[in-house]
Amino acid sequence: MNAVESGTVLKALETAIPKEAISQAMADTHSDKERKRTFPSHIIVCLVIAMRL
């Protein structure tokens, strides 16, 4: 079985789920925050989705 690199998976997720869609979903559910983070929220959402694959 061939392993898929994590960067490839994240790029595919970012292509499949646009940043704007994630931002809108977070705003709709009042999950957006004003804090500064190491990683932007849309990247964290993509990481969580990738963990479930």
Rank of each mutant, 00 (worst) to 15 (best):
P18A: 13
N2H: 09
R52V: 03
L13G: 05
Q24P: 00
L47H: 09
D32H: 08
S23R: 01
K36Q: 00
A21F: 06
S6V: 13
V4W: 14
G7L: 07
M1E: 15
A12T: 13
E5R: 15
T15I: 08
I17F: 09
R37Q: 02
G7Y: 08
R52C: 10
P18W: 02
T8Q: 14
Q24E: 12
E20S: 03
C46P: 03
G7W: 05
F39G: 01
E14M: 04
R37D: 00
S31K: 12
I44C: 05
S23Y: 01
H30N: 12
A50L: 14
A16E: 12
I49D: 06
P18S: 13
S6M: 11
I49W: 01
L13I: 04
E20P: 05
K33W: 01
A16N: 05
I22W: 03
T8R: 15
R52K: 15
P40Q: 05
E5Q: 11
R35W: 00
I17Y: 11
H42I: 02
V45I: 11
F39A: 05
V45N: 12
M1L: 15
F39P: 02
D28C: 06
K36E: 00
K19L: 05
A50P: 12
R52N: 14
S31C: 11
K36G: 01
A16H: 04
T15S: 04
T29M: 09
F39Q: 01
T29H: 13
T29F: 08
K36P: 03
K11F: 03
E14I: 03
L10Q: 09
K33T: 11
E34A: 12
I44L: 11
M1Q: 12
A21C: 13
I43T: 11
A3F: 14
V45C: 12
S23C: 03
V4F: 15
L47F: 00
A21S: 14
I44G: 04
I17K: 09
T38C: 04
A27Y: 05
E20L: 02
M51Y: 13
L47V: 09
E34N: 03
H30Q: 08
H42Q: 10
H42R: 09
R37S: 10
K19V: 04
M1W: 12
P40W: 01
A27D: 08
A12Q: 08
D28M: 08
K11A: 10
L10S: 06
T38D: 00
A12I: 13
D32L: 10
L13A: 01
T29D: 11
E5I: 05
P18R: 04
M51S: 14
V48I: 13
E20I: 01
L10K: 02
D32S: 11
T29G: 12
C46N: 10
G7E: 14
A25I: 07
A50S: 14
I43G: 07
T29A: 14
E34F: 04
A25Q: 13
L10M: 14
K11E: 06
R37G: 09
I17S: 05
M1P: 09
A16M: 13
A16T: 06
T38V: 00
A21K: 12
H42K: 06
M26L: 15
C46L: 10
D32A: 10
S31Y: 09
E5D: 12
N2G: 07
A21P: 02
A25H: 07
I44Y: 10
E14C: 01
K36F: 06
T8P: 02
T38W: 06
E14P: 02
A27K: 11
S41P: 01
T38I: 07
